[in-house]
Write a protein that binds this DNA or RNA. Structure first.
Lengths: 220, 220, 220, 220
DNA sequence: GATGAATGAGCGTTCATTCAT
DNA sequence: AATGAATGAACGCTCATTCAT
């Protein structure tokens, strides 16, 4: 039971810190051993806490996973915010992609590994899927206007939707490959290739856009 | 050693059929419940066989997983072979991409789901990684010349390597998303977007290629 | 197929050969891996036969173990018969002890290992105990008159019984130690020490005998 | 590393008690059903505990077995210490033999049965062999000076070594026979016969000793 | 809040035994 | 007689979860 303040007596609640501590430990364990290696005991040990604490501060493992998804979301947003500063148009879009895949000081290997793992876990576990999906949707809410701005298309258009999906997919795939076959990804190639793919998508959408517009014009 | 007599009489072996049957069952179970749900008992039940049979026909679970990787490889090769017939140049490349992602009669949802699962499993399990990687390498051996042919670049060049990696990543990501968030992928968008991204990669490589060539020219 | 003659119709029964073959294989497996390592498949493999044959020629594993006990008994009797030839009195007794423990051409390491294993198995398995006990009783029937002859005591006397038990125990223990701690038994020490222990038993019995006789005399 | 906080509060550990409880249960199960019957579930049931607890308090079954060996060693030492009090020379040696085999208040049937089982297990299982052997060596370290004192021979001499081995073997064998054929061992015969055998060994060694001394004298 | 024991279901695997061919 | 597949119980072990202290 998460008793929040208790007024006077008793010790001060430290549940938020403990939860953060455990989520942090979970990230490290997943990055090292995958979800299969993330038993409650292993997580607690990684956090330097007693095993029983996991279920004291989290109802169950799902909740811990959901908390992890939130943390990943926060980190991603922060990275993007830092990179976006002062950009606009296509540059903003590239800043978004770089925030996810570029090597550098703000690169977050742990988060990438966890995100890849979550993507697969989400397939079979409804609560996890909901949390993972929430993050994805939040990210999409950021990405969509960027694509719209970079192209001039309507944010709700099919072209934008498809391009966003494609970029999501490419990023997801890079996360997976960078864990399971890192030697296939020359350092720095991911961010550059992603920009190139984005460019291809925009150009393609452009063509489609033109065709659609022309077709509509003809109909009149 | 007495040669097991080798006389004819006796029950005829059926291990190949059983192995295929079990691999097939494993695909269905993984597609439905993920690797975490693919216990030996569940696999046997899905195949309609007794639990003990799994370890009668496979030395252990890893071997079953390796057999699955082989099967995925075979299926992928077959799909591509069918789609490639009579094409050349960029069309062959597109045939390759479509073989992996296009909707249609030859689409293989089960295989895609398993492949996504394998990609994550491979990160923490050396034997699985070896099997998975062998498939990836085989696929790369097919993809590389296709990209080279479509662009005129040297097959061993950095541009080709990066483009292949990018296409691998995009496909990988589409597999993940199509399981965990299928509603985000409008039917048919994957194959089209992948072509667009490929085009972007080729154009980008073209630029790089030109720059490299020009730089070399200047050096003289 | 090892079809021997076929007389007329049907094949000639070869169950006795097969049984011998399997018992022989069992001895080797037990000597190498102990009873715990003697699975039916391992036994069949050691014999170069198909797994199913074990239960074709034996009702179950117990029966195989009983057959092993018989075989051990036959071998022991044969070794003693060879060594006894032309001896009498104490020499016969020593021939008996040597037949069980002396190093030499007729030494049977496999049999010794199996006998040690059987001794422990017999404790918890009634059918095995019966077979093992039968062998022990047969051996006792040989040993008792030897002790009686070497000492002049009545074969049915308590002294003889105790001496036989002590010799049985010492032999049993030597079998165990020679497997689990062979380096503690200097080559050749077993047979010599056993003779010395036997001598001690006979002398002790002598004392007891005298005391008993004297006591009886006094009573009159 | 965060030091697990080490605050006082929390459930007090009880692993030592539980381990003792489980070792005790293991002894009973082995005495009743042998090692083959000593599955983790059976042991836990005998101890009145949940099955999972076995592996909570012991890393694995081997560790439990090693703990059993330690316990047997402790019990044997205690019995001997009690019987040895105030004795010297041959009487101490007899006290040692009686501690292992005499009937009486301090007799430990369970321990004897387990020791017999361990002796056979040790043959094929390296970790068990190490534990069993450690006990054997400790016992030998006690026995050797006793024999040396009772005879006046050098503790490191071959005669002493052989005599110790013979006594070890005899005790080992009595343990086996007392389980698998108790009716062959009249109550009380074991301890008496063992003394007699020991006497025989000492006398025999005496002869050998004399012969050796004489031979050396002649050489001069 | 915190600790570490307790619980029991489930996992991969082995195995004696039975059965179809 | 022989072969090799089939069966299901059991094993050692792990784990999320619960609970007493």
């Amino acid at each position: 039971m998460i008793k929040k303040s208790s007024g006077r007596r008793g010790r001060p609640p430290n549940t938020p810190e403990r939860r953060a501590q455990l989520v942090e430990a979970l990230m490290r364990v997943i990055a090292r051993d995958g979800w299969a290696g993330a038993g409650t005991r292993a997580i607690a040990a990684e956090a330097g806490l007693a095993p029983g604490l996991v279920h004291y501060h989290f109802r169950n493992k799902h909740e811990l996973l959901v908390a992890l998804a939130d943390e990943l979301s926060r980190r991603g947003s922060a990275r993007f915010a830092a990179r976006r500063a002062g950009t606009s148009g296509t540059a903003s879009l590239y800043a978004f992609l770089d925030a996810n895949l570029a090597r550098g000081e703000d690169e977050d290997t742990l988060a990438a590994a966890c995100w890849a793992e979550l993507g697969t876990l989400a397939a079979h576990d409804a609560p996890v899927r909901r949390a993972w999906r929430a993050v994805l949707d939040a990210r999409r809410a950021v990405l969509r206007p960027l694509v719209a701005e970079a192209t001039g298309w309507a944010a709700a258009s099919r072209q934008v939707t498809d391009a966003c999906a494609a970029l999501d997919a490419a990023m997801e795939g890079y996360f997976v490959l960078s864990r399971s076959a890192p030697d296939l990804l020359p350092a720095g190639s991911a961010a550059a290739s992603l920009r190139a793919m984005a460019a291809g998508l925009l150009a393609h959408g452009e063509d489609t856009h033109d065709r659609v517009v022309r077709r509509r014009a003809r109909r009149r």
